[in-house]
Amino acid sequence: MPIILENVSFSYSRKTPLETLALRDINLRIEKGEFVGILGEKGAGKSTLTKLLNGLLKPETGTVRVDGLDPSLREAKRRIGMVFQQAADQLFCKSVYEEIAFGPQNFGYSKKETEERVYEAIKAVSLDHSILSRDPFSLSGGEMQRVAIASALALRPDYLVLDEPITGLDPVGKKEILDALKKVKDMGTAVVTVTHNLKGFFPLLEKIVLIKEGRIVFQGSRENYLRKDCVPLPPIASIMKELRARGIPVNPEVFTVEDALEEILRVKFALEKEKQ
């Protein structure tokens, strides 16, 4: 069963002069095991959308269903793991172990079960066992974010929702998070992420949702996203498009640097052959 949003609208500060419409007429379906990217400019309503998914906000009109459940139910919350942008805003325990065990303990799992889940979670984000005894605040930004992801994964969610998980991290930290999320997705958990960083995420995304001024203006595959001339584009797609515009017949539908390189070399050899 998927997450389904039907005709969802939401405004902030309802019934006051400050009322602002954040989302309108959102229809969206997120399947189990998908890697979904939610794109859009600042203030487009991306973060509001993630908060609607796990019941932190209630839609003004329309319905949100998580596997058929109301998202404010405890069971629905367990099925959706949330990771917010500032990992430091949620860390509070003396050790990483306690931090990751916080979720399972809240749901009343036994000590053995909790331990099993903690080890499973840190494995999923490729952290070493030695980190479990460390103080969460002594970690690097990338490690902190991975601990935050692990603490969401410890509830074995079906969907992992992240709000700009790699913003503000150094390149090493970014790569660590991207690798961890890829692994999480390969293990069968759907990953839904809000992001500005197309460069990092584009190779991973299976489905793209583009929001503009509170409306979904595009949803579909990466191929279609590139075909429809949507913006923003990842740098590699911009380069391919520009090459094509300047008369080099490359196929602009590439998602990674490696693919782009291969495509450019292919065209180069083809052109050289033609000359001969």
């Binding site: 908060k51 796990n54 932190l56 405890r74 919350k77 367990r78 959706i80 793991g81 949330m82 917010f84 500032q86 805003d89 949620q90 916080f102 979720g103 809240n106 749901f107 603490s151 969401a152 509830l155």
Partner: peptide, 20 residues
Amino acid sequence: ERVERTKAAQAARGMDFVKN
């Protein structure tokens, strides 16, 4: 705003203020 953010993050991990 910070209180709201932290509250949301902990609630997502199943924290129940009334119960515990």
